[in-house]
Computed example of a mutant assay.
Amino acid sequence: MQLEIRPDPAEVGRARRWARSRLAGSGIDADEPLAETLILLVSELVTNAVVHTGCPAVLRLCLPGGGADAATVRLEVADSSARPPAPRHADGDETNGRGLELVDGLADRWGWNPEGAGKRIWCELDRCASGAAQDSPYGAFGGFAYEAV
């Protein structure tokens, strides 16, 4: 499923609402940590596309539906700007520059690929088998696969 995004900051809220509506019936409850993390990632990637490219974009969301990838949620934002994403570290009180740092910290995997004249930035979240994460001492991250570095 996909959503066309105009180069307008108001599109970020629309993208979040769209993603929330797609969670209904997907097997991911709206109050699951996975859902909240997914919505935050949608917000960050769509914001980056809208603010840094000035081009229309396409938001794609691949939710669990059975099969080998049933435990993985994939989010992609494709735009027509050839400029690669530029992760940076914001200092102190800066209000910008943390988007890709957040994506890196929250997603299990992320990256980008050239696509036509533009690019596709993607990230994936893994769901652990229910019960496994709840036995974990990291209960706040239940439902996620994670790696401490």
Rank of each mutant, 00 (worst) to 15 (best):
W112M: 10
P137Y: 08
T47K: 00
L63C: 07
G116Y: 14
I5M: 06
E147W: 03
L63T: 06
R88W: 02
Q2Y: 12
A132L: 13
S136D: 15
H52T: 05
Q2P: 00
G143L: 03
N113H: 15
S81K: 11
G105K: 12
A140N: 05
Q2K: 15
R74P: 00
G65S: 12
L40C: 08
A71N: 11
L23N: 03
A15Q: 01
Q134D: 15
L34K: 01
V149K: 11
A57Q: 04
S136W: 13
D104S: 13
T37R: 08
S43I: 00
L63M: 06
S26V: 05
W112T: 11
L45D: 03
A19V: 06
C128M: 09
E36Y: 03
S136A: 12
E124Y: 02
Y138P: 00
W18M: 06
R98A: 10
R109F: 10
R22V: 05
R120L: 13
S43P: 00
A10D: 12
R88F: 02
A133D: 08
L40S: 14
A140T: 09
V149A: 13
S130H: 08
N96F: 12
G131M: 06
S43N: 06
G111L: 09
H89L: 15
V46G: 02
S136I: 09
G99R: 01
Q134V: 05
D31S: 11
V46D: 01
T72N: 04
L38R: 04
D8P: 02
G142I: 01
W112E: 10
A15C: 04
R83C: 09
W122P: 01
A68H: 08
G54H: 13
I39H: 03
F141Y: 13
N113L: 15
A24Y: 08
I5R: 02
R14W: 06
P85E: 06
T95F: 11
N96Y: 12
A30N: 06
R14E: 12
